[in-house]
Every structure is written in structure tokens, then in C-alpha cells.
């Protein structure tokens, strides 16, 4: 049976490009950078279309690529511009219509989230914002589902503690994530 790579790419692009755009927009400081990350992610998918897993397994695969592309983007000079200015602006315009302004800075919840480690924050937002399931997150992070469950549980506990304590002066946000929120940053896996 022949397999049409272009049709498969069109399928995953249609199904998941919006989700990847949202993922990038939530974690970068400007919308054009989010557009770039989305473009790079799907360029990798296009180049590797025959390595994209079948069916809905493409979704965590794409998030995994996007996560690496996002991390690469925070390496300054080493990143490359994926889009021309006009297309990047058009995509940024779409993102801007869906932005929620100011909530993040004012909210106690947001401050607690900001005070967490990058890894905790990434886990919690993958569930809370991106709506990903535990097994999908396991694939994205390259660890077992049990590990994800455990890490999520611990992250959630730390988050609750910060919320309850409300003493964020002693635990200020680290501030080195250059995104609106967390910087996806692949780390060594816990065993």
C-alpha cells in the first residue's frame, strides 16, 4: 500500500497546528517568536514525515519536537529565523486575538506557578493549559507514565504549598525563563 507523505503532513498540520501554536504562544514572550517555533516544529515534521507515529500518537510527537525547538530558541544566536517577516506578523496577529492580558502578572495563582521550578511548571501547564494526558506527557518527556504521575503529584503538592503559604517574597519567581511563562528546557530524567 502506498503512503502519501504530503497527505499525512496535511492531516497532522490541520489537526495539530493550532495546538502547537497555542503551546508556543503560552511559553514565549512575543507572538512572532511563537510563530517561528510553530513553523520550525512543522518543518521538522515535514522533513521527517515518515517518522511521525500513526494516528493520534502524532500529537505527543509534535509536542516533543516543539519542546526542543522552544528550548533551542532560548539559545540566542544559535536560533534561525524560520519565517519571513510578513507571514510571522500575520500569525502573530492571530495569536494576539486570543491573548489574555495582564491576568498572569496580577494573580496569586500565577505568582505561585512562577515560583515553581521550571520542571514543575512545565508539567502542570502541560496538563492545565495544553490538556495533555499523562501518557502523552510521558512520551513528550521520554519517561514512564508512572514517573509522570509521581512528578505531577509532587509538583501539585509544591504548588499547593506555595498557594497556601502565600509567602512569595521568600520564594520569588526565578525569572530566567524568557517566555510569558515557563521555558521548556529538557532536563535529565529522574529514575
Amino acid at each position: 500500500m502506498s503512503y502519501n507523505g504530503r497527505a499525512r503532513f496535511e492531516e497532522i498540520y490541520d489537526a495539530y497546528s493550532g495546538a502547537i501554536l497555542a503551546y508556543a504562544a503560552r511559553r514565549t514572550q512575543d507572538s512572532q517568536e511563537a510563530a517561528d517555533i510553530t513553523a520550525e516544529t512543522f518543518t521538522v515534521a515535514w522533513r521527517r514525515i515518515y517518522e511521525v507515529p500513526p494516528g493520534e500518537e502524532a500529537r505527543p510527537w509534535l509536542y516533543g519536537v516543539a519542546r526542543k525547538v522552544l528550548a533551542n530558541h532560548h539559545r540566542g544566536k544559535r536560533r534561525r529565523r524560520a519565517l519571513d517577516e510578513r507571514l510571522a506578523s500575520n500569525i502573530a496577529g492571530v495569536i494576539d486575538t486570543a491573548m489574555v492580558n495582564d491576568t498572569a502578572e496580577k494573580s496569586t495563582i500565577a505568582r505561585a506557578l512562577g515560583a515553581l521550578s521550571e520542571r514543575d511548571r512545565e508539567l502542570l501547564t502541560l496538563v492545565g493549559w495544553d490538556g495533555l494526558a499523562r501518557d502523552e506527557i510521558a512520551k513528550i518527556l521520554g519517561c514512564s507514565r508512572a514517573t509522570v504521575r509521581l512528578r505531577l503529584h509532587r509538583a501539585r503538592q509544591r504548588f499547593q504549598t506555595l498557594l497556601l503559604e502565600g509567602d512569595l517574597k521568600r520564594n520569588p519567581p526565578t525569572g530566567h525563563g524568557s517566555g510569558r511563562w515557563a521555558t521548556a528546557r529538557p532536563e535529565q530524567e529522574e529514575v
Partner: peptide, 26 residues
């Protein structure tokens, strides 16, 4: 955590689906 999502996901999905930018990027 969902209450502080900086992006309205549903709205973005709608705007993206109907935008020319989606097709242009493809």
C-alpha cells in the same frame, strides 16, 4: 492553573482555522 492560561485556546483554534495565515504557513 487553567484560570491563568495566557491564551484562550478555543478562540485561538477558531481564529487559526479561519485565518489565511494557517494556509500560508502550510
Amino acid at each position: 492553573i487553567r484560570t491563568i492560561d495566557p491564551i484562550e485556546g478555543d478562540r485561538l483554534a477558531e481564529e487559526w482555522a479561519s485565518s489565511g495565515a494557517k494556509h500560508a504557513l502550510f
